[in-house]
Amino acid sequence: MVVMCNLIDVAKTVGSNRMVQTVSVPYPLGDPDMSPEDDWALRKHRVEVALNSLATEVEEPTVFPTKI
């Protein structure tokens, strides 16, 4: 399971083993201040990171990097 969240420390506390940092609380996967094209690229990238994390074996709680 992958948890996409803004509050990584909370996700760790509840026992998540794969975590992907989101952008913000009101806009977890996007940024309304970006152009539509850039916003789409940001959203797509975060979802790709989450999907790729499912294919990665982890031994302990892991935060997957989201830098483009």
Rank of each mutant, 00 (worst) to 15 (best):
I8R: 03
S24R: 13
D33N: 12
N17F: 02
P26F: 13
D39S: 14
K12F: 07
S16W: 04
T62S: 10
K44D: 11
T56S: 08
V25H: 05
L51N: 02
T62M: 04
K44G: 02
A50T: 06
P61H: 05
D31G: 02
Y27V: 11
E37M: 12
E57P: 05
L29W: 07
T56I: 15
S24M: 10
V2N: 02
E57A: 14
T22F: 07
K67D: 05
C5Q: 02
L42N: 03
P65L: 14
R18G: 05
T66Q: 02
V63W: 04
K12Q: 12
Q21W: 01
A55M: 05
F64P: 00
P65N: 08
M1N: 06
C5D: 12
G15E: 04
D31Y: 07
D38K: 15
A50W: 03
L54I: 14
V14M: 04
M19R: 06
V3T: 09
K67E: 12
T13V: 07
V25P: 00
D33Q: 12
A11Q: 01
I68K: 12
G15Q: 06
W40N: 02
S24D: 11
F64H: 04
T22S: 09
M4D: 02
F64D: 06
L29R: 09
M34T: 06
N6T: 08
M1A: 13
T13N: 01
G15S: 05
T62H: 03
V2E: 05
E57N: 11
P28D: 13
P65M: 10
P36H: 04
L51I: 09
S24I: 13
D33Y: 05
A41Y: 08
A55Q: 07
N52A: 09
V20C: 03
L51K: 01
E37I: 15
S16E: 09
D31A: 14
E57Q: 14
R18W: 03
Y27T: 14
A50I: 10
L29K: 03
E37R: 05
K67F: 00
P36D: 11
M19I: 15
